[in-house]
Design a protein around this nucleic acid. Structure first.
Lengths: 198, 198
DNA sequence: GTGTCAATTGACACAGTGTCAAGCCACAAC
DNA sequence: GTTGTGGCTTGACACTGTGTCAATTGACAC
């Protein structure tokens, strides 16, 4: 039955998630993942051609399971640019901790694997689109702070929402995720919104 | 003569810098570095016990050669908190591109090597001190924007000045370094300085 | 000459990825 | 009932890169 194929594949993906979440992206060798899946190391290669491919598939799988699209809906439906901006930060900021393990592994795999680098870049460019949409909405409302071009503002917003920044604030500085979301919103408002009374 | 030891050691360090700058932190295997130094691979191990140790030594070496301390002096001598903040961003922002290759390599080595992780963390904590000093100065002037605790403001400033953010803005977004410095100053002022007229 | 010391050569252990070939086993078709 | 077929197993092996070890060379110092 092909449902068994799917079953094994899914079992590998779930095991990968578990291993990576547990080790924070480090470790999680093919042999470990195989063991965790309850199959042989070679069997993993029957489903995924390489470690990079497995990581990429796991990333996509997580996005589906965690319903990234649904989480972004409130931002898309926002009535004002300011709302769009803060709702986007909220959605993304609450999403990062859920994907951190897998994301970190893919981030690290970039070093040695071009396919992984490309996949991560794709992922981040999709995230950039959300930033761009928020900045564009702000601009349409005439509330983009003076001095910014839309591209520059998008680039900065994008960069400040990157995983390493989140990583530093939460893991290194000990912030809660709530704290992260709250302050990123504040920083973004003060930085990008015209006349944000402080 | 021990001057010859130093000479070889320095030659290795210089070669390491060249290799890492060239490959943007990727590549630069021990064999490559040895070849670039004009000695055998094993000879490198006579001077540095491991790749991680070599990377750490190279980082320190660069800080000395590039006179990081001297570059930070203007910020330390600043009369106002606002000046201290912007001069610090300027110094650090202009320093990153000079160390990027080596920094990136050390950053990547963190994954597999605990000593490298520790060394990088040390390095970043030193950078955090500069951020803290700037925020403290701002606070002393009574110009820290309302809402911030000094720790939180320090954490955010620190995080936004991290190498990956610079990397994304310059390499990914194609910004010039001048552009990076200018906008980081602006973001920091709008975010942290009370009554920064926008 | 003898000692010392940096450096060389070449071999090897080890970890982790990825490949290959042979075989096992359950289930389906005829 | 035997013949496929497909998913999986086992075990061996190639390859890369790090780090170790031992024997040797060559220069310079005393």
């Amino acid at each position: 039955m092909s449902s068994e194929i799917v079953e094994t594949r899914t079992r590998i993906l779930e095991a990968t998630v578990r291993m990576l979440e547990e080790h924070g992206g480090r470790g999680g060798r093919m042999a470990d993942i195989a063991k965790e899946s309850g199959i042989s190391r070679q069997a993993v290669y029957l489903h995924f051609a390489s470690r990079a491919e497995l990581l990429i598939a796991t990333t996509k799988y997580r996005d589906e399971v965690l319903e990234l699209d649904r989480r972004l809906a409130p931002s898309r439906a926002a009535k004002s640019g300011v709302d769009r901006l803060t709702l986007y930060i909220e959605a993304w900021g609450n999403y990062i901790p859920e994907i951190y393990g897998v994301a970190k592994a893919l981030l690290l795999a970039q070093d040695t694997d071009d396919a992984a680098a490309l996949a991560w870049q794709d992922r981040m460019l999709a995230m950039r689109d959300g930033c761009r949409a928020a900045i564009d909405a702000l601009h349409s409302d005439g509330r983009l702070a003076p001095g910014w071009t839309q591209k520059e503002a998008t680039d900065v917003l994008w960069s400040m929402l990157l995983v390493p920044t989140w990583e530093n604030l939460t893991i290194e500085c000990g912030w809660s995720n709530q704290q992260y979301v709250r302050w990123m919103k504040t920083v973004a408002e003060r930085t990008f919104v015209k006349g944000s009374g402080d």
